[in-house]
Amino acid sequence: MSLFRTELRRLSKRRFTRYMTLLGLLVLAAVVVGVFFTNQKIDAGQLAQAERQADQQYQEQMRWSEQERAACEQAKTAGTATDGRYPDDCSVITPPPREEIKAEWFLPSTFDFKETFAETLIPFAAILALVGFVIGASFVGAEWSTGGMMNLLLWRPKRLTVLLTKLAALLTGILAVTLPAAVLWFAGFWAVANFRGSTEKMTSGTWQSFMLTGVRGVVLVLVLTTIGFALASLGRHTAMALGGVVAVMVVGQFGLGILLSMASVRFAEAWLLPTYVLAWMTKTVTLQDWNSCNATYYGECKPATMDITWQQSSILLSVGVVVILGAALWAMRRRDIS
């Protein structure tokens, strides 16, 4: 217990921890403020105005397709070459249905809490996960590279206990920042919706869904923090974790992405990690294979799809944590410290 408290104290004393946390929170605040100022509340007058504009647009479309059909028929009867400008059957040239032209298009953007809040949890989790990763990596990495870890082991010779206690203190610290930040995030966007949009139509089901997404976001932050910690402990240097991740992202993911698309592999994104992170947050990501899409002049394109679910992501995240943390613990037990 005393070790745990000491490690918490060490974590909070570090300037890197403080600055990184502050930076992360500032970025989050900037997002909330940015959303606040780019959205507006819509009153009835504006709504009616937008409906009128949508109607106008529809009329325009009608006129245009009318003209086109006439031109098409004319060209048909005259027998002039149209080089594929018109379809064989001129009757397929129709205006879009009225409901396809939405009034929102003619409205300034507004923040609908029910519609949009879940999406905002993605940058929330991503920013804090990044902060957690670098704090986790530097917390143990600096200990290794400055000899602090060796000093500590002279006091506490049980290596696994020391490493796991450090991790527990780190996760506690990160959680102590993430949870209040999440509450503020909810409150912040509720306020944004109140003043710059609407908070209508919220049901207990929606709330529950938001809560669950929030919980998944927090889990993501903790997982990435653990991975950063474990990588830096494995490499015994902060730079090892950061370098490792840059290597994985640039070579592994960027390179792989280019390679896969050159080889025109179906559903290339299924091989890329960010897809799974996204799926974890949004519950499903539907990948589309546009090569298999047979678009016609008038028909809708229906590409083949593949769903990546949050369950699949959870398996990937668990395996990642188990393997990397396991390796770090094994190395801690076995390797000489000099």
Partner: peptide, 17 residues
């Protein structure tokens, strides 16, 4: 030692552990 801590902090953290 961790270079950014003071001597007192360094010792106090060891004492805590």
């Amino acid at each position: 030692f961790f270079p950014h801590f003071t001597a007192r902090d360094t010792l106090s953290l060891l004492a805590g552990a």
